[in-house]
Structure formats: structure tokens, C-alpha cells
Nucleic acid binder design. Sequence first.
DNA 1: TGCCTGATGTTCT
DNA 2: GAACATCAGGCAC
Length: 194
Amino acid sequence: MIIDDGWNELSFPAVHVARRLLGSMLVRDVNGERISCRIVETEAYDQSDAASHSFKGITPRTEIMFGSAGFLYVYFTYGMHYCCNIVAGAVGAGEAVLIRAVEPLTEFDYTVMAANRLGRQGMDIANGPAKLCQALQIDKTLNGHDLQSAPLQLLLQPEIPDTDIITTTRIGISKAKDQPWRFYICGNPYISKK
DNA sequence: TGCCTGATGTTCT
DNA sequence: GAACATCAGGCAC
């Protein structure tokens, strides 16, 4: 099923896809409820990148990253957090885009996400890769999930103008820190703090 | 506001 | 056995 004519763009390089995904929507069905949110911050990773899980080649964990674009790569980190990526690039390229922050679209979405975050309030309910996974109840059971289908769908939206996108170096990593591969929507209050 | 630290499981060497 | 694409709480200033 083709949701959007732009879907094929996901097989472009991760740096392109990371920008393209800004403003797109994620729709999550969980516990009989539907949460909709907008992607406002991303980071690109590819195989040439020492900070990327794919840097050392295919392992049982990273094989999803080397698969088809448009699938979800979920990994567990720091013993207590999940982070989610959208696979990008050609098959075998080992590229992905880390979703760092989303914003709820409606009051209802905000309420459900805040509840998933154990009642946390304000702008920090999903402004971090582990936070948004908690808010949207994304865990390893969704690793390898096709984002064209429920219970988690990616809906591509018209491209955000370059003038509204801020590009910076990535945060929260120890290797390849200088790559300017973090992107967020200018002025959005839901992005990460660092 | 900013720094420090504890919590914790998976992955890889 | 160490590293890790993190987060939240506590403390000093």
C-alpha cells in the first residue's frame, strides 16, 4: 500500500531523509486509542559514521538498518531506554534517521502521551529519543515494523522549507560529534534541550 | 541554571 | 567487562 508519493524518498541518503521527515506525522494505535504527533527533530546516521550502529557492519542487532527504507529500527540503551529510528537509504546501505522529538497534534494526543510518560507535563513529554518512545509506547516489539501499516504509521507531509530548518551537530554521542546531521524545526518548543 | 550521579540491560570485544 | 544515539533527581551556586 502506498500512502504517499514521497515514500520512495525514504531510500535517499539519511541526511536527506532526516530533513524530509521533519513535519511528517506518526500515528500510533495503542490500547484502543490513536495518538497522532508531528516529527520536529531528527538525526541522520550512516555506515561511514563512527557514531552509527551500522558502522561496524551487519550484526543481529543492526540488520534492520541494512534492510528496506521505511521500516522501524528500535534499540534498547542504557539499560532502561528505547530509541527509535526510521531506516533510510538503499537496501544494504546501513542508514537510518533517529527520531529525537515529536509534538502532539491535539489536546487529546497530549493527554495520552503525558499519561504514558507517567503524568509528566509541559514541553518535555517527548523531547528526547527515549522520552518519545515512552510517550508513544514504542518498544522492541516494534523493531522491524513496516511504517506503512498499523499500529505505527508514518504519514509524509509536504516538505518543510529549508529556511524553517535548523541544522546543528548531533548531541548525546561520543563519536563523530562534528557531523552537522541534527535537524529541527525552527522555533518549535518541543525539541531537545541540549 | 548547571553539574553530577545512579539506574539499568544489551551488545560487542 | 566496558561502552552505550538516556533520563531524572539532587545538590550547589
